[in-house]
Amino acid sequence: MEQDKREYQKKKQDPSLKLFVVLSKAYRSVSDQVANDIRSKGLNTTDFGVLELLYHSGDQPLQKIGDKILLASGSITYVVDKLEKKGLMKRTQSEKDRRVTYASITEEGIALLNAIFPDHWKQIERITDGLTEEEKQQAITLLKKLGSYADEYQKENES
């Protein structure tokens, strides 16, 4: 029993475990604030993510949208249908390959993002003001490094 308690205390102090817990809590806190801001503008985070992707990156094959905004492939059709019904995006067939369908943001979608994105950006700046500009750059570098390593680790373990 005493051995188990010592082992638990040792695990509690492990920086890997602590990093995971702190990273998870920070992500949830920031993500919840951003989601609240998006909802206040009449969209959900998935709809906003698709529109933002199309707004900033241009037309996208439907099959690639899920990978870029971390959306399950089964959900893409539902989201695209909903945004299309609202007139915020449209589907277009590829002229080169009829099997490929592109999602495109409409003029209405562009107008909506032009109206809400500047305030959304300011809200993200306010949410992340707990770090200096230098700390933000350090965090970006470190989190990219951590994510790249985790991706490589996963690939190694899949083979």
Rank of each mutant, 00 (worst) to 15 (best):
D129S: 15
Q154M: 10
V80T: 07
Y55N: 01
K96H: 02
K5Q: 11
R126Y: 08
G130P: 03
Q63I: 03
L146E: 12
I76M: 07
L19K: 10
N157T: 03
V80P: 04
L62M: 06
R99P: 01
D151Y: 11
L142Q: 11
E134I: 05
S75K: 11
N157S: 09
Y8R: 11
H56L: 15
T92L: 07
D14R: 15
L88M: 07
E134C: 06
G109E: 02
V50W: 08
Q93A: 13
K96G: 02
E135G: 03
V79G: 06
E52L: 05
M89Q: 04
V34Y: 02
E52D: 04
S104Q: 04
V79T: 14
I140C: 02
H56N: 08
A111T: 10
E2T: 07
F117V: 05
N36E: 13
Y8T: 07
A35V: 14
L112W: 09
A35Y: 03
S16W: 04
P61L: 05
L53G: 04
K68Q: 14
K82L: 03
K136V: 02
E133S: 09
K86R: 13
Q33R: 13
P118F: 11
L70Q: 11
K144R: 15
I69M: 07
E52A: 06
Y149S: 08
T77P: 00
K144W: 07
G109H: 00
V34Q: 06
D37A: 07
Q137V: 09
K11E: 10
I127L: 09
T141Y: 08
R99H: 12
M1P: 00
L142E: 14
T101I: 10
G74C: 00
